[in-house]
């Protein structure tokens, strides 16, 4: 059970003056239950990549296999693929539209062809998962705060019971506490529901803190793929492509240059703290 991308290429506006190759020869295997971060500057191909994973975009060439089956086969059920690979877009709260929170979350499962009762059950479960207080279920989603709206939008995707959850910058525009709450929620679902999670983010600190594996995109190519420690080792190269390492990683490198025995693979506050305390022991 996995997603495999085999030599995937995608070209926008083929044959016109604006032809752009957004994905170049992408080879990628995503194993079940992984928590993956995708980073890259705006326009590096991150969003194009994730939209291939649930079949919203079709590769110009190359193959994509979900659980061993070629998703471009003629009789492959694309609709089912999209329920199994759930995609939460940027600013998903802009897509809320129903009159009550509960109805909005029911929309996905109803569309899947489930009965009203079943859809309701799914919605109930999903709203519970994202920590929505029951007293709000029958209120309008438009009166919630930004962070809460986003939870409802995420619940809408969860109600379809995806095996893989892809989130495109789920914390953009949220305050620090809201950001931590959403990320903790995602980490929790990964742990408890054994869901495969793919997180697209602009915050190096957040990816370092939460994910096991980081994929770095630059002009349509994957240039690094590894653990946070491995990827942020290339902090100088990351800077040249518009990214950076977490602040603590820089600190550790500089302390090392000053001659201290600092762990330069530290990418989180916890790791940096451990290494610094060790120096002073």
């Amino acid at each position: 059970m996995s997603i495999i991308l085999d030599k995937v290429n995608y070209v926008y506006s083929t044959g016109s003056a604006y032809e752009i190759q957004a994905l170049k020869n992408i080879n990628l295997q995503i194993e079940d239950g992984q928590f993956i971060g995708i980073i890259g500057h705006t326009g590096s191909g991150k969003s194009t990549l994730i939209q291939h994973m649930n079949g919203l975009m079709k590769a110009t060439s190359g193959g994509i296999y979900f659980n061993g089956r070629d998703i471009y086969e003629e009789d492959y059920d694309k609709k089912e693929l999209r329920t199994r690979v759930g995609l939460v877009f940027q600013y998903p709260e802009h897509q809320l539209f129903e009159t009550t929170i509960f109805d909005d979350v029911c929309f996905g499962p109803m569309n899947q062809g489930l009965s009203k009762d079943e859809a309701g059950l799914r919605a109930f479960e999903a709203l519970k998962m994202v920590g929505m207080p029951e007293s709000l279920y029958y209120q309008s989603p438009f009166e919630l705060s930004g962070g809460q709206k986003r939870r409802v939008a995420i619940a809408g995707v969860l109600a379809m019971k995806p095996e893989v959850l892809i989130l495109d910058e789920p914390t953009a525009g949220l305050d620090p506490k809201g950001r931590d709450e959403i990320l903790d929620l995602i980490a929790d679902m990964h742990k408890k529901k054994k869901m495969t999670v793919i997180l697209v983010s602009h915050s190096m600190e957040d990816v370092a803190k939460y994910v096991q594996r980081i994929i770095v995109m630059n002009s349509g190519e994957i240039i690094y793929d590894g653990t946070p420690g491995e990827v942020f080792r290339h902090y100088r190269e990351l800077e040249t492509i518009g990214l950076a390492a977490p602040q603590v990683t820089y600190l550790m490198h500089e302390l090392k240059e000053f001659g201290l025995d600092a762990d330069t693979d530290a990418t989180t506050i916890e790791e940096a703290k451990k290494s610094i305390l060790k120096m002073f022991r």
Partner: peptide, 20 residues
């Protein structure tokens, strides 16, 4: 107040709490 501090400030704070 649902806010945060810069990562370096937080690390320094954690180190202080640990006795440094």
């Amino acid at each position: 107040h649902r806010l945060d501090v810069p990562q370096i400030t937080l690390l320094a704070h954690e180190l202080r709490k640990a006795g440094l």
